[in-house]
């Protein structure tokens, strides 16, 4: 946001924690030496790269974020069974469709999360976002009811995202 970013000791606290966790997972250990080395990396890498970051909206409600992630994981498993049944069934009966879903959220990060969620869940793949960021173009593998599908996407996935990012 501000043109001359001021030097800060801990520019991205969330990323620092993430870096430490990934380092420990990568080495598959929680020994003291790796915690020290990981903490050093987690402190220096954000300091060096803070200038390259685009300003992103903050997570206002982290608890809803966790609930959303768990819900999406459950949906992924259900969606996979649905797609597997559709693939194994006769492909003559499939009714593929392109639909345009109107989206209300404006920032890039929530739109990215929404598009990724749509790609991973029930029989839909996001293909394109319109230039003014008002429409998400989605390909559906087997469509039974267009309005119901759009309503599901908006209620189940977009509604929590607007709460999380408060936009």
């Amino acid at each position: 946001m501000n043109p001359q970013p001021r030097f800060r000791f801990l520019p991205m606290p969330f990323h620092s924690v993430l870096l430490l966790i990934v380092w420990l997972l990568l080495n598959n250990t929680v020994s003291f030496g790796h915690i020290v080395l990981g903490s050093f990396l987690a402190l220096t890498i954000p300091m060096l790269t803070a200038g390259m970051q685009n300003p992103q909206p903050r997570f206002h409600r982290p608890l809803i974020m966790i609930r959303y992630a768990i819900m999406v994981l459950g949906d992924i498993i259900v969606a996979n069974f649905e797609v597997a049944l559709l693939v194994l069934g006769p492909s003559k009966k499939l009714q593929p469709a392109f639909i345009a879903v109107p989206i209300d959220i404006v920032n890039e990060l929530p739109i990215t999360i929404l598009a990724s969620t749509v790609s991973l869940t029930p029989g839909t793949v996001s293909a394109e976002v319109s230039e003014d960021k008002n429409w998400l173009y989605v390909h559906v593998l087997h469509m039974t009811d267009k309005d119901e599908l759009i309503a599901t996407i908006k209620q189940r996935y977009e509604q929590p995202l607007t709460e999380i990012f408060a936009c």
């Binding site: 992924i76 996979n80 797609v83 693939v87 991973l120 293909a127 390909h139």
Partner: peptide, 26 residues
Amino acid sequence: FIGSLGLAKLPDFYTRLHAPTKATTL
């Protein structure tokens, strides 16, 4: 296997895209 089967048998590109992205991930 189901992911790759879908890739091989479904009729057009856009339907083929669904199988590997979902089934293979799970």
